[in-house]
Design a protein around this nucleic acid. Structure first.
Lengths: 131, 131
DNA sequence: TGCAAACACTTGTAATATGCAAGTGACTAG
DNA sequence: CTAGTCACTTGCATATTACAAGTGTTTGCA
């Protein structure tokens, strides 16, 4: 099939999603403002790196949501994917520098929950990200 | 009406929604982990109190979502509703002590956005909640 | 050589949430 | 009496989420 013009192949890869406002809070929420994204960041801060490890978390993220969120977070530059072995290829997901800076957000969310929601507990130990 | 046993009439009014885990982050996200709730908290920290004022924010929250979120946040004890005038009755929504403590979360989200998302700006002035 | 199992997903489908437009009721100003 | 405002509610189309099941690649083991 002959291509007579390149009209359809856009010069930009992504058409830049419309932003709700210039507010930094609104823009941050558009990236991680859902029920799952920040839990994945939490898990990565705690040292988890693989798809299987994320599935083990007690909240029980559905597999399709997990795949979607990993893709989104990677597109936003919050996490990076790298193969940690070939044959079979296995991927490790880790936080970028940007992603690691979300630690302050996670810490604030955790503090609020511990103070204001009965029955919440921080799991201390080597894997804990808090402070 | 005779009550032979109290098995069915629960001592609690609400059946307590199932929690995903005891993690303070997950529980906090179950209350405010969506695209709109924290923007309303932001607006209230900035001094807004009425339904109409929330609608004016640049993000453009739909009216049904606004009504729903105000109800939810009130149920969670994050905001309180009070009539500031009778005839016609008009309501003011304000943060509770718990709600005001979300300021740390908002501050962290704003800081992250300002550092990592190009084009975001904090609107300084009398209404700014940052710090 | 065959077979079960693990990993990292993808697909299908139903339930739920969101976004948009329009409508409602109580009042108020002209 | 009419138009307009405020604070919502309702209907409906679309999008997102949750749950279950399936896929392809590879390894361990009999």
């Amino acid at each position: 099939m002959q291509v007579t013009s390149m009209k359809k192949t856009a010069p930009k890869a992504n058409p830049a999603p419309p932003r709700r406002s210039i507010c930094p809070v609104a823009n941050t929420l558009d990236r991680v403002g859902d029920k799952w994204s920040l839990l994945l960041v939490r898990d990565m801060l705690a040292g988890k790196t693989t798809y299987g490890q994320f599935l083990e978390s007690p909240e029980g993220i559905p597999t399709n949501i997990l795949a979607d969120r990993l893709k989104r977070l990677e597109q936003f530059g919050i996490i990076a994917r790298s193969a940690y072995q070939e044959r079979p290829v296995r991927y490790a997901y880790t936080l970028t520098t940007e992603g690691r800076q979300l630690q302050r957000v996670l810490g604030a969310l955790a503090d609020w929950g511990l103070e204001n929601i009965a029955g919440t507990k921080k799991k201390l130990g080597p894997g804990s990200f808090v402070r």
